[in-house]
Computed example of a mutant assay.
Amino acid sequence: MDSLTASDVQDDVHPEQIQLSVVLPVYNEKGNLRPLAEELREVLESEYDHWEALFVDDGSTDGSYGVLRELHEEDDRIKVIRFRGNFGQSPALDAGLDYALGEVVVTMDSDGQNDPADIPRLVDKLEEGYDCVSGWRSDRDDPLGKRISSRFASGLRQAFLGTELHDYGCTLKAYRRPAAKDMDLTGEMHRYIPALLSWHGYRIAEVEVNHRPRTAGETKYSWQRLPKGFLDLINVWFWQKFSGRPLHVFGGLGILSMGIGSLAGLYAAWLKLTASANLSETALPLFAVFMVMIGVQFFLSGILADISIKGYQHAKNEEPYRVRDVLDHDR
């Protein structure tokens, strides 16, 4: 699998052959994999004729890959993507979404805390006309410190992003295929998937799900993730608000700064002409020049950002819009 790309795999199997794909990032979860795979198989076999489970081994060092290889040999519907190193949860989810062949894609954690029995409920909610259904762990079975930090982070996300969800951090989500393929996850961006999809015009819903205690292995979450997540939050917020018009924000700041500098300069000149003030004893002229220079820098940054974003969209062959339906004379 290391030498294959997602497009190679999708050329071998037509996506319509798979009803449901389940994507599970794995990092040192050896003790949880077999029980979880058995639960998944039981749920999926009872609900769907054609399904697949994609475990993405994110550089595990505890023997997780050996267990995954055994599971694949026992059932080829259980597929394994193995990374060359530890790249993080967002890249692991991104790879799984790229390789997934199903018309519906579900993501979930591999630590056993997400309940596979909730999958049909999320898929049923999709059928009501949504593009993404996110799990809400209303009764979380986590340590107090983790619950507090998650609550704080969720409040920040709501304040910055405006997406009305109770639980941004739940990996258990269901997507229609277009939404699943319309994401590029890096850093800690998996926490902001609903906001990213909502920004692109997809319809988002939330369903309460079961949250179970961890029975094996150790949690991978720690306070060190908070500053990284906050920086990604600022990044998502900026892209959501200004990615199509960066000159508006940088240019606006530039005009404001140059305006303040110009007023300070005029005031300094007025003091010199009317009161014969000794401007060498005040920082007013320096402040005026500094603010004008900062304003010019902001304005130039806006122009460069605008050029960069247009180049980014051109390089990725990406349009600044998403089409939902097309009606023409042939339909």
Rank of each mutant, 00 (worst) to 15 (best):
residue 1 M to N: 05
residue 2 D to W: 15
residue 5 T to M: 10
residue 7 S to G: 00
residue 10 Q to T: 06
residue 11 D to P: 00
residue 13 V to Y: 11
residue 14 H to A: 13
residue 17 Q to D: 12
residue 18 I to V: 12
residue 18 I to C: 09
residue 23 V to I: 03
residue 24 L to S: 06
residue 24 L to D: 01
residue 32 N to Y: 00
residue 36 L to Y: 03
residue 40 L to N: 10
residue 45 E to D: 15
residue 47 E to P: 00
residue 50 H to Y: 13
residue 55 F to K: 02
residue 55 F to D: 04
residue 56 V to S: 07
residue 61 T to E: 14
residue 61 T to H: 02
residue 66 G to H: 13
residue 70 E to R: 14
residue 78 I to K: 01
residue 79 K to E: 15
residue 79 K to R: 15
residue 81 I to R: 05
residue 81 I to A: 08
residue 87 F to W: 06
residue 93 L to Q: 08
residue 93 L to W: 00
residue 98 D to C: 12
residue 98 D to T: 03
residue 99 Y to Q: 05
residue 102 G to A: 02
residue 103 E to A: 07
residue 104 V to C: 07
residue 109 D to A: 11
residue 110 S to R: 06
residue 112 G to L: 03
residue 115 D to W: 10
residue 116 P to G: 04
residue 117 A to D: 12
residue 120 P to M: 04
residue 120 P to K: 07
residue 122 L to N: 02
residue 123 V to H: 07
residue 124 D to E: 15
residue 128 E to T: 11
residue 130 Y to G: 03
residue 131 D to A: 01
residue 132 C to S: 11
residue 134 S to P: 00
residue 138 S to L: 09
residue 142 D to P: 00
residue 143 P to D: 10
residue 144 L to W: 05
residue 149 S to C: 01
residue 151 R to W: 10
residue 151 R to T: 06
residue 156 L to S: 01
residue 158 Q to F: 10
residue 158 Q to K: 14
residue 158 Q to W: 13
residue 159 A to R: 12
residue 161 L to D: 02
residue 163 T to H: 03
residue 163 T to S: 08
residue 164 E to F: 02
residue 166 H to G: 13
residue 171 T to C: 07
residue 171 T to Q: 13
residue 177 R to K: 11
residue 178 P to L: 05
residue 182 D to M: 03
residue 186 T to P: 01
residue 188 E to L: 11
residue 189 M to G: 02
residue 192 Y to W: 03
residue 193 I to M: 07
residue 203 R to G: 06
residue 211 H to R: 09
residue 213 P to W: 03
residue 213 P to Y: 04
residue 225 R to K: 03
residue 228 K to T: 07
residue 229 G to R: 09
residue 234 I to G: 02
residue 234 I to R: 13
residue 235 N to I: 04
residue 238 F to N: 06
residue 251 G to P: 08
residue 255 I to Q: 05
residue 256 L to T: 08
residue 258 M to Q: 10
residue 259 G to N: 01
residue 268 A to E: 00
residue 269 A to F: 14
residue 269 A to I: 13
residue 271 L to V: 10
residue 273 L to Q: 12
residue 274 T to S: 14
residue 274 T to H: 11
residue 274 T to R: 15
residue 276 S to V: 09
residue 276 S to Q: 12
residue 279 L to A: 05
residue 282 T to Y: 11
residue 284 L to Q: 12
residue 292 V to E: 04
residue 293 M to S: 15
residue 295 G to A: 01
residue 297 Q to H: 02
residue 299 F to P: 01
residue 299 F to G: 06
residue 302 G to P: 01
residue 303 I to C: 06
residue 305 A to I: 08
residue 307 I to S: 10
residue 309 I to P: 00
residue 311 G to N: 15
residue 314 H to W: 14
residue 314 H to M: 14
residue 316 K to H: 12
residue 322 R to I: 11
residue 323 V to A: 13
residue 324 R to G: 03
residue 327 L to I: 15
